[in-house]
Amino acid sequence: MAINVISPGLSTTVQDLGRPGYYHLGIPLSGGMDRFALRAANMLVGNDEGAAVLEAVFLGPELEFTAPATVAVTGGDLPPKLNGEERAGWEAFPVKAGDRLSFCFLKGGARAYIAVSGGIDVPVKLGSRSTYTLGALGGHEGRALKAGDSLAVGQGAGGKGSVPANLRRMPGNPAELRMLPGLYWHRITETAGKQFFADTWKVAPEADRIGYRFRGGTALNFVAREQPFGAGSNPSNIVDACYPYGSIQVPGGTEPIVLHRDAVSGGGYMMLGCVISADMDLIGQLQPHSPARFVQVSMDQALAARHDRQATLQRVRAHLDR
């Protein structure tokens, strides 16, 4: 069984749950930006939740199947079409040899997850099939798909069913991104901290798998200090340090950037804290220009949100008899 890529979409990559364990070498986590949707797509087609799928952003690919399989598309509202006929998202459907899967224009969210029974069978690199394009590592030849590519698919039993709307997770409008202040939060003034949470930000065009930039809020005021040796002269500079996944850095104090799955692993900009693990999926579904707010939470609230997300996933499993 194989998938032939007729047209690749804007940037379609092979992703699974990621490649932890190599951050100390500068190799990021990678994996799906919305791992909730990725897991659900795999459940629908009867795969392990961590099987490799295709992640399409903004514009879907056109794909041809060489053998029968089960397919499901989850995530943003990028309606699939089978041989030109629209199909529902978040629902398993069978395909035959020669069938073509294409997509309508994006109606909501940003990324769709295309799971095929058996999973995309690219070689495992450092424990994962995920694509890290900057490092040309993993996925299909370390890059986004191109027309003419052919992807091997594993053997799978297939699955059925759909995920009802109340069990899907999508960002609100404005998106509310819960954030635990910390790291170098003490570098900004109290007023600047309050304003950061009060402002409504907008996703900038520079929003990709490395990170999401936000603009439209107030520039930060820093607490005055003599810059430490080796940090650099700008008050937003620190001695180059690790950047946690989800950390919010603010180069020059102007536009916050939330690092995501293909994060640069370190650098010399101060960070205000991290978006909590439960809300990282939501960032993956934000389009440029969409409004977002950062909402301050405590560690206890972050852990409660993490458990809520897990409980929702558990309800999806129960709903699909898994």
Partner: peptide, 11 residues
């Protein structure tokens, strides 16, 4: 310092 619910950062 905690970096969200999954990291501890140590300066």
């Amino acid at each position: 310092s905690f970096g969200g619910d999954e990291h501890i950062f140590a300066e």
